[in-house]
Design a binder for these strands. Structure first.
Length: 422
RNA sequence: GGAGAGAUGGCUGAGUGGUCGAAAGCGCUCCCCUGCUAAGGGAGUAAACCCCGAAAGGGGUUUCGAGGGUUCGAAUCCCUCUCUCUCCGCCA
């Protein structure tokens, strides 16, 4: 959610941002400004009326205390009239406030000036490419190798739960555990605080990070208890400080959390979902930063660099994309995607997405701090994967396969695997 | 799952229908006093929103777990919900 005052003062900027993000119309901007004016004048009216009634009520109290019941009675009659008018206005103001808020929720975050304007994948900018993209003929996709070695059991996963819920068997299970350990150790070494988070969240939290009302369908629900299975650790971790006012000494806050993630991914099909490319349950280490507004630009760069360093340590070729306005999503001001090279599939696979949300999320969840002047101000939030496991696993299997049919263990994982060959 | 107790400001804790946004204490900030230290005195110390103002600031409204209700008036009475604690049961 954007700040209504900011919209009021920069309507053209907000409109342009909306258009650049691919919204059909930016009418909501003018509408929300008008609704806000309406709301403010109603509030002024109500406040005045209430002030009158309050002072009359105090008068009654005073008279009652002095035993002047008849004089009090006369004033009571007067306040009763004001009360009815008040009720009417209050109903009106709540309707207007809701209309204003709905409009406000429909306006996306304004893209940063450094973001390329564009409306499709092709307009994303290749920010960086690292490593050689292997393309030998004999390279196999990871699902063939995994099936051969009985490392991943998709069929039994389907039997036990459903499609997209595989079992990892033996060495493959251990590889996952190795990656989780590696990612968390690296993050802690970089100064992130490790956090173990709940896997279910309530409705307020889902709303706080914006899964509700927009993206409800992506989540699995536990209706009986009103919970949602988290689609990413971003949800519980960012909500950790919801409704809090932090002191500036606590900043920046950096968290790393490993959790499974559940996504319904309705409507997916074809080669995109083969093997480990897209699952309903997967593991991920998520990084969340809560920072001073002045530092969020730098924090995004260091977040990206950190995520990139993980792929470099695993020696997995990748590229970094700077997402264009139309491909970056509703809540972000700027976003980088990291894509690892999948030699067996000859395509790029997204393994991390590093985003700056500015104060957009913070405002929605009332995440604030006391600034230098002692005023409360919205914080900035960022997050990025560090990293999502399945596609990294796919890339490892495909990149480290040998012509003789083995798969080697990346050097940095050997201490965790206790072997050089998986 | 059953029985009971509770939720008040940064913290402790008083307040059971009327000058209560809330006593008192602690903490914190500033000032005074004190040649160090210790102690003492005074003032201040929540958030959101609206209006006025260039600003400093001023005025108003709302908020005592959340939501609804009774009343001219609610921290205080009624209803619903959430959370915390204690005991019992169950359990990794």
């Amino acid at each position: 959610m954007l700040d209504i005052t900011f919209i009021r003062e920069n309507p053209e900027l907000v409109k342009q941002g909306m258009i650049n993000k691919g919204e059909k119309s930016a009418d909501a901007v003018d509408k929300v400004i008008q609704k806000d004016e309406e709301w403010r004048s109603l509030v002024t009216e109500i406040d005045t009326l209430r002030a009158e009634n309050n002072s009359l009520s105090k008068e009654i109290g005073k008279l009652m205390g002095q035993g002047k019941k008849e004089e009090a009675q006369a004033i009571i009659k007067e306040t009763s009239e004001g009360k009815e008018k008040l009720k009417e206005l209050e109903e009106k103001v709540s309707v207007v406030a809701e209309e204003r808020d709905n409009l406000l929720y429909s306006i996306p975050n304004v893209p940063d000036a450094s973001v390329p304007v564009g409306y499709s994948e092709e307009d994303n900018e290749v920010f960086k490419t690292w490593g050689e993209q292997a393309d030998e003929e004999w390279l196999q996709p990871h699902w063939d190798i995994a099936e051969d070695k009985k490392w991943i059991d998709f069929d039994r996963g389907s039997k036990v739960t459903g499609a997209g819920f595989p079992f990892y068997v033996g060495k493959m299970a251990r590889l996952q555990r190795a990656l989780i350990n590696f990612f968390l150790n690296e993050a802690v070494e970089q100064g992130y605080t490790e956090l173990q988070a709940p896997y279910f969240v309530n409705e307020d939290s889902a709303r706080g990070t914006g899964q509700i009302p927009d993206k409800e369908d992506m989540m699995y629900t536990i209706p009986r208890d009103g919970f949602f299975a988290i689609p990413t650790a971003e949800v519980p971790v960012t909500n950790f400080h919801r409704d809090e006012i932090l002191s500036k000494e606590e900043l920046p806050i950096r968290y790393a959390a490993y959790t499974p993630c559940w996504r319904r991914e309705a409507g997916s099909y074809g080669k995109d979902v083969r093997g480990l490319n897209r699952l309903h349950q997967f593991d991920k280490v998520e990084l969340v930063k809560i920072v001073h507004p002045d530092t969020s630009d730098d924090e995004l760069e260091s977040l990206r660099e950190y995520a990139e360093s993980l792929l470099e340590k695993l020696k997995l070729p990748y590229r970094t994309l700077l997402m264009c306005t139309g491909d970056m999503g509703f809540t972000q001001t700027k976003k980088y995607d990291l894509e690892v090279w999948s030699p067996g599939q000859q395509r790029w696979l997204e393994v991390s997405s590093c985003s700056n949300f500015g104060s957009f999320q913070a405002r929605r969840m009332q995440l604030r701090f006391k600034n230098e002047k002692g005023k409360t101000e919205m914080l900035h939030t960022l997050n990025g994967s560090g990293l999502a496991l399945p596609r990294v696993v796919a890339a490892i299997i495909e990149t480290y396969q040998t012509e003789s049919g083995d798969v080697k263990v990346p050097e940095v994982l050997r201490p965790f695997m206790g072997a050089e060959i998986i």
